[in-house]
Simulated assay, not measured.
Amino acid sequence: MKILFGFGLDDDQLIGQAVQADREGLDLVTVSDHPYLHDRLDAYAALGVILGRTNAVTAAVNVTNLPTRPAPMLARTVAGLSALSGGRIALGLGAGGLWREIEKLGVEPLSPARAVRALEEAITVVRALSGGGGPVTFDGEFYRVNDLIPAAVPAPPIWTGSLGPKSLAVTGRVADGWIPGHASDWRSDRVATSRPLIDEAAVKAGRDPRDIATIYNLPGRITTAPLPATRDASGRWRGGSVAQWVEELTSAVLEYGAAGFTYFPIADGTPATTALTRWATEIVPAVRAATGTRTPPPGQPLAPEPRTSARPSVPDPST
């Protein structure tokens, strides 16, 4: 079994945290993507530096703001990072949410329905432009390429941040994983009602729902002493002692089928580097041991490989 354990990086300590996560044996580091904010680093510029400063950890944007990054160029960017890092990259994709901010970059706004269609089309384009093969021509509703040679490297795992029913169905049809929105976890109503929609769409598309990983963004405190309650009145995870974290995450894997966790420290006065160390060296090894999670040899990326190495045929968008 292969479960991802990651860490959500803070812009202010980006490189130091990434190097620490790599050194302490985590599988994944992630950065956010808000290109309309002046005080945030460009996500893919950051990813390039992170991958250049680390040796084994996989990196991902959690999640890519697709409306500001056209799919054909995104495919080329991700292919380059994959080639240079030995495949240590995953592609998180979002249809776009803060449209008032996105429009400041000169991007044409899309209705929710069109944004979802663009998301599915983007996944098709990224896969088509990966893995080698003959020239690709694609004339879609949102993206067009003409006689373009795919990159030789395979497409990375593609995870979506889907929220609504239509985008959840896209995840089931074409994605490799799902990152539940609003840091919802395995005991939440959101996951309980959303994951069946992914599974239903997967089955209709002839896929095995088990091939679509659920990777949770998980904020919380790591305390020195056990907390009386690890969840608040609404049922949201608050955190707790190392033993409480280990018990909860072990249950998430064995009982709820969780495929990964990206930890985000809570601002409670604990230095982020201290929280990262406790997560990476105390909680993660214990959960790996309890769940039988496989860890890779040094230098080998752990990001789940695409389920098929064949580049999919490009559908005719007119049909």
Rank of each mutant, 00 (worst) to 15 (best):
A310L: 14
K104L: 14
A275T: 11
R127I: 00
D268M: 04
D316T: 06
P165Y: 09
T293K: 00
P209C: 06
R221A: 13
P296H: 11
L227N: 03
Q20W: 07
A155W: 08
P312M: 10
L98A: 15
L148H: 02
D11P: 14
V253K: 01
L41C: 02
P296S: 13
L84W: 06
W245C: 00
N217H: 14
D139L: 11
G86E: 06
M73Y: 13
P285V: 02
V63P: 03
I89N: 10
D268R: 09
S167M: 10
S111N: 04
V78A: 03
S188Y: 12
A71P: 03
T277N: 07
V125E: 05
M73P: 01
F261E: 02
D22A: 06
S32P: 00
R207L: 03
P317W: 07
V126S: 05
G164V: 10
G161M: 07
R190V: 08
I89M: 12
P70R: 06
W279G: 01
D208F: 09
G269V: 09
T30Q: 05
Y44D: 00
L148I: 04
L197R: 09
G16A: 14
A46C: 12
V126D: 04
V31L: 07
M1E: 13
L302G: 01
D147Q: 13
D139K: 12
P312N: 08
L93M: 11
R76Q: 14
L66Y: 07
Q300R: 15
K166M: 13
V61R: 09
I149Y: 02
A286T: 01
D42H: 09
A272H: 08
T273A: 15
N62H: 04
D12R: 15
E282G: 01
R294Y: 05
A43R: 05
P156D: 11
E121M: 02
I212Y: 03
A43M: 12
L93Q: 08
G239N: 02
A183T: 12
V78W: 03
R40N: 01
D268N: 11
A43E: 12
S82I: 10
D39C: 00
S318Q: 14
I215K: 10
R278N: 00
A258Y: 02
S313L: 14
A155L: 08
S309Q: 13
T171K: 06
I89A: 05
T223C: 07
E120P: 01
V203S: 07
K204R: 15
I3R: 12
L227S: 06
L302V: 10
E101K: 13
R88A: 08
V116M: 03
W186M: 07
A155P: 04
D12Y: 03
D268A: 06
T250W: 00
L84Q: 13
D316R: 10
P228I: 05
I212T: 10
D232K: 01
M1G: 14
I215S: 05
V116Q: 04
L51R: 02
L218K: 06
R53Q: 15
L119A: 12
L4D: 02
G52L: 05
T224K: 14
G80R: 04
G235T: 02
A45G: 15
D33V: 07
W245I: 00
L81C: 09
I266P: 00
A60S: 13
G48N: 10
G140H: 08
G52F: 09
W99T: 08
S184W: 02
A152C: 03
I212L: 03
G16E: 15
V107I: 15
T274I: 07
S32K: 12
P70S: 04
Q17Y: 03
